[in-house]
Computed example of a mutant assay.
Amino acid sequence: MGEITAGERYGLTTLTSWPRIYMQLPPRMTQSLRSTRDALDAAVNLCWSFLAMGLASAVALYDEPGSRWLPAGMLITAALAYKGAVIAAQAYSGLMHVVYDLHRFDLLEALHHGLPTKELEREMFEQVSDTLAGEWVADLPYEHRRGRGSHVRDTDGGADAQ
């Protein structure tokens, strides 16, 4: 659910903004996300593997009453791996929410948009989401800064110091 709701609270479509906001994260945050995602992937792979092995062993050992514990054990292990996958997915979702809480304005800066007021924040992020989805937004402000003391051309072609 985090892949859908993390950015939507602020007006950002998570699926289109995540690849861009992820690139703005500090190394410590990306390491946490990678670690949690690896745990999720491992738990899901274990779940499917034990499920497949449990079903295959049930078919292979259907006429061996003394070996029925083996498929049952594998299915129980698959259920435990599933529980682990759910826990890892919740942790990953929580980290995605933290990313949007702390770094959504870094995304605006990287896309050369100014910071909105609190009242206009949601509208600004909805416009950014529309732009990232391929729609053209006419009134989305654009500010290109090259650092302190740089010059930006105004609409008349003159240079204004920022």
Rank of each mutant, 00 (worst) to 15 (best):
L61H: 13
R9Q: 12
T16V: 15
R68G: 01
T155N: 13
L12C: 07
L70E: 03
L111V: 14
I87C: 13
T16K: 15
A43C: 09
V99N: 12
A60C: 04
I4D: 12
R9M: 10
Y92S: 04
V137N: 01
V98P: 04
A52Y: 00
A88E: 03
E3K: 12
L51H: 04
D101G: 13
T14H: 05
G158R: 05
R9L: 11
C47D: 01
M96W: 03
H97P: 03
L25F: 06
G147W: 04
Q24M: 08
Y62M: 13
G147A: 09
S32F: 02
D101T: 13
Y142A: 14
E64K: 15
W136T: 15
E123V: 14
E126I: 13
W69F: 03
H112Y: 14
H144N: 13
G149Y: 01
G7D: 05
A85F: 10
Y142S: 14
L61C: 13
L15T: 15
G134H: 12
C47F: 05
Y62K: 15
G147V: 06
D63W: 02
E121L: 07
T131A: 02
S57M: 13
G2H: 10
A88H: 02
M96D: 03
G149D: 01
R28N: 10
T16G: 12
L108P: 08
I87L: 14
Y100L: 06
I76C: 07
Y92T: 04
I21S: 11
D156S: 14
A56P: 01
E126C: 10
E126W: 08
Y22C: 05
W18E: 15
D130P: 00
H103P: 12
R37E: 15
M53S: 11
V59K: 08
P26R: 09
M53Q: 07
P19C: 15
L95T: 04
V98A: 13
R145Y: 07
E119V: 10
A52Q: 07
Y92A: 03
F105M: 09
E123C: 14
Y22V: 05
R68C: 01
K118C: 09
R9Y: 08
R104L: 01
D63M: 08
S150L: 09
R28H: 11
L12P: 10
L95N: 04
L55A: 01
L107R: 11
G149L: 05
E123I: 12
I76A: 11
G157P: 05
P141H: 08
D106P: 02
L25Q: 10
G84T: 04
E121R: 06
A138N: 13
G157T: 09
D139S: 02
E123S: 14
G149A: 02
A159C: 04
R20T: 07
T13E: 14
H97L: 00
A159G: 02
A42E: 06
S32M: 08
T131Q: 00
D130F: 07
L33Q: 00
G11I: 11
D41Y: 06
G84K: 05
S129C: 09
G158D: 07
A91N: 08
K83N: 08
Y100Q: 05
E123A: 15
L108R: 12
P71N: 08
A60V: 01
L51N: 06
H144S: 15
A91T: 06
W69A: 06
A81D: 05
